[in-house]
């Protein structure tokens, strides 16, 4: 990034190729929409490029990257929230919308207690469980799980204290445990390596 700051465009291209999978991965699970995640990731890289001359290496680059990603994602969620207020009556799935995959699977699992889920189904369950978390909890979980970020780095990314991150992750993991425990206790899923 320091080379890009000095005007080395090749160095910036290298940054894009190094971080694009990680960024799009986290954003895809954050916004539950691959195309939306890619659009957001492009926006993140563009924003970083435009402000590269003001970059100060006060933290790891990944912390800086995901901090911008989180801010842009929050702005987008806020914008969509405003639009949704207008679009609510147009829902075609009843007043409460489509049932989450978790609910559908739970219902089918009650009919077939010994049924084992395939990986795609379980991914859908996990994604639904993630979506049940609030925005900060979800981002903290994704950074912790997929970026293996320390609490200090998550705190810097989310602009929170380390104590707040500890509390946030504790609640998030507990919520996930409640949602996902049935799938691990009843043997519906065992990791396939």
């Amino acid at each position: 990034m320091l080379r890009a700051k000095k005007g080395d465009d090749g160095a910036f291209t290298q940054l894009v190729t190094t971080y694009q999978d990680r960024l799009v991965g986290v954003l895809t699970h954050l916004v539950s929409d691959r195309q939306g995640a890619e659009d957001l990731a492009q926006e993140v890289f563009l924003k970083i490029y435009k402000s590269r001359h003001g970059y100060e290496p006060t933290a790891k680059f990944s912390t800086y990257l995901f901090r911008i990603a989180n801010n842009l994602a929050s702005n987008r969620r806020r914008d969509r929230g405003r639009k949704r207020e207008v679009n609510l009556p147009g829902s075609e799935s009843g007043p409460l919308g489509a049932p989450p995959a978790e609910q559908v699977l739970a219902e089918s699992s009650s009919l077939m207690p010994t049924r084992r889920f395939d990986r795609t189904e379980i991914q859908s369950v996990v994604q639904d469980a993630l979506e049940s978390l609030n925005d900060n909890q979800r981002m903290a979980v994704l950074l912790n799980k997929f970026e293996e970020m320390s609490y200090i780095d998550i705190a810097a990314t989310l602009d929170l204290s380390v104590a707040a991150v500890k509390s946030l992750l504790s609640r998030a993991r507990e919520n996930l445990r409640v949602k996902l425990e049935p799938y691990v206790t009843q043997g519906h899923w065992t990791p396939q390596g």
Binding site: V24, E38, A41, K145, L176
Partner: peptide, 24 residues
Amino acid sequence: TWDLVGELPHVSVTQEFTGKTLDS
């Protein structure tokens, strides 16, 4: 349950995404 979260799909972007990003 934390291990289960690790089952979420790994994402790899396409060359097209890289090209579009660098073009923008």
